[in-house]
Each structure stands twice: as C-alpha cells, then as structure tokens.
C-alpha cells in the first residue's frame, strides 16, 4: 500500500512539476539580459587585457622596445575601435545617456583618447607617438599639430 502511494506521489509530482509552466503559461526568459556583456564590450575587455599583457611582457623582458611600441599602438587602435562601438551601442540602448562603467584600466584608454585629441596618437595607424612628434614613428603620416600642452 505504502509502495503504491509512494509511486503515485512520485509520478504525479513529477508530471505536475513539468507540466505547470505550460498550463499556467509561465515563461522562461529567452532574451539576452540587460547587464550581460555584449560582444563589443567583450572585445573591449579583451583589448584592455591585451594592453595589460603587453605592458607586463615588456616589463618582464619578453618584448623588444620596438615591438612593444608597435603592439601597444596596434592594440590601442583595436581597443579604441571596440570602445567606440560600445559607446555607440550604449547610446543606442539608453537614448544618449552614455553611462560608462568606471574601471581603472580605462584610464589607459582615456590616455589614448587624449593622445588622439592632442595629436600624439596617429590617426591612420593608431601608433602612440612621443609628445611633440610631427610625424608618426610607425607609418610616417603627418600628425596634426598639438593645440595644447598634453597633460604630464
């Protein structure tokens, strides 16, 4: 008797449990959640991490100075592209209120952007040149004249 009751409870319980969502019309979400990393955010993150790696690789002597500068320029360019994409995306999503998440390493990116504005980062290849350069050390393109003293 106890066995039959147990079996009935087990079977009934399971059936009820899996059928309820369909009967009651309860839904599981199938949408991407709001706070999930988007692909461009993920790309940005990877670029920023790569930037950090390059710095460590250089500091631990795995990269030549020349390679280091080139790579740093290259990755900065990738990071910038990803960053622009993220901004465009978040603007699209939040209607212009670009609330950027505060993150320490983004200060690096801020520096790159600053460099872009002040003219030390090359517009054609993304290489970061020393302050006051007139031509890009990487591709030779002429750099726009600095309009103000870059912050130290």
């Amino acid at each position: 008797m106890a066995l039959i009751v147990g079996a009935a409870l087990l079977t009934g319980g399971v059936i009820l449990y899996i059928l309820l969502p369909v009967i009651q019309g309860r839904f599981a979400s199938l949408e991407r959640s709001e706070d999930e990393l988007t692909e461009s955010e993920a790309k940005k993150r990877v670029s920023l991490l790569a930037l950090r790696d390059v710095e460590y690789d250089f500091a631990t002597g795995k990269l030549d100075e020349r390679d280091y500068k080139e790579l740093k320029g290259e990755i900065s360019r990738e990071a910038l592209a990803a960053l622009r994409e993220v901004e465009a995306e978040s603007e699209r999503r939040r209607g212009g209120a670009a609330a950027e998440r505060a993150g320490g390493i983004e200060a690096d990116i801020a520096a790159v952007r600053e460099g872009l504005r002040t003219g030390t980062t090359c517009h054609s290849c993304g290489h970061m040149n020393a302050d006051g350069s007139h031509f890009c050390a990487n591709c030779g393109a002429q750099l726009p004249a600095a309009t103000e003293t870059p912050p130290g």
Binding site: V14, I18, L19, P21, V22, G25, R26, F27, A28, L30
Partner: peptide, 30 residues
C-alpha cells in the same frame, strides 16, 4: 520525462516559446 524535456527544449527554442523552455528546464531537474 527526459524525452518530453528534450523535445520541448528544441521546439521551444526554435519557436521562442518560453513556457515550453521552462517546462524543459524543469524536466532536467525532475
């Protein structure tokens, strides 16, 4: 139960039916 969940998961995923998907996920636990 496993077969039920399997079918519902694929059908629910294809047609965007959240209720079927929830039932499928409950099948996993069950």
């Amino acid at each position: 139960v496993a077969i039920w969940g399997m079918v519902l998961a694929f059908v629910g995923g294809k047609h965007g039916r959240g209720d079927l998907v929830l039932s499928a996920e409950r099948s996993v636990y069950a």
